[in-house]
Amino acid sequence: MSQKAIVTLEANLKDDCIDNFFYLLSKYLPETKMYDGFISIKIHQCTTENTIVLHQEWESITHYEAYLRWRTDNGVMHILRANFTSDPIIKYWNTVIV
């Protein structure tokens, strides 16, 4: 059995966009949860700054990259990006200890 893909997306939110960003998540997450290869997502907000981390689990990196391409092609990433102070940082992780 292959290891699942852990993906994080970290971004800093503009001060005046926090509520809008969480509204957009509530709008788009139902589609995400139905996308092929999606397993789970947890969203974390830093307690001392406007940084958010989306901690996601996917069947594979290939599944996530197809999802990201879809979100980019249909304009959602552009809409989300308008709430960030800079481009988000996406990282792929291996689970080494459970």
Rank of each mutant, 00 (worst) to 15 (best):
N83A: 07
T47C: 09
W93F: 07
K27F: 09
D15V: 04
D73G: 00
N12I: 12
R81M: 06
L54C: 14
T62P: 03
T51G: 10
L25Q: 04
T95W: 06
F84L: 00
T8S: 09
K42I: 11
H63N: 15
E31D: 07
P30G: 11
T95R: 09
C46Y: 12
T47S: 14
S2G: 00
E57T: 14
S2H: 13
W93Y: 12
K91R: 15
W58I: 09
T32G: 03
H44S: 10
K14H: 13
Q45Y: 08
H78G: 04
D73R: 02
I39H: 03
E59Q: 15
V98F: 09
H78M: 02
T95H: 01
T8K: 09
S86D: 15
A66R: 12
L54E: 09
E57V: 11
N50M: 10
N20G: 00
G75V: 06
L9D: 00
T95G: 04
T32Q: 13
R69N: 14
F38E: 01
F22V: 00
T48W: 15
T48N: 15
Q45I: 07
I41K: 06
H55F: 15
D19S: 08
I43W: 06
Y92P: 02
H55E: 10
E49L: 13
L25M: 12
A11W: 10
F21K: 01
M77Q: 05
R69V: 12
K42S: 15
L9M: 13
S26T: 13
E31T: 02
H78N: 07
A66W: 03
N50V: 11
A11F: 01
Y35F: 15
L68K: 07
Y28Q: 00
W70S: 01
E49G: 13
A66S: 06
Y23S: 12
T62K: 12
L13Y: 02
S60P: 05
W93C: 02
T51I: 12
H78I: 11
W93K: 07
Q45A: 09
M34K: 15
V76L: 08
I79C: 01
E49K: 15
Q45H: 14
M77L: 02
I52V: 12
T95K: 10
V98D: 14
I39C: 11
L9W: 05
I89K: 13
W70Y: 12
W58H: 02
P30I: 04
M77Y: 05
I79H: 08
H44N: 12
D73C: 01
S86Y: 10
L54D: 00
N12L: 14
I6F: 02
H63W: 08
M1P: 04
A5K: 06
E59H: 07
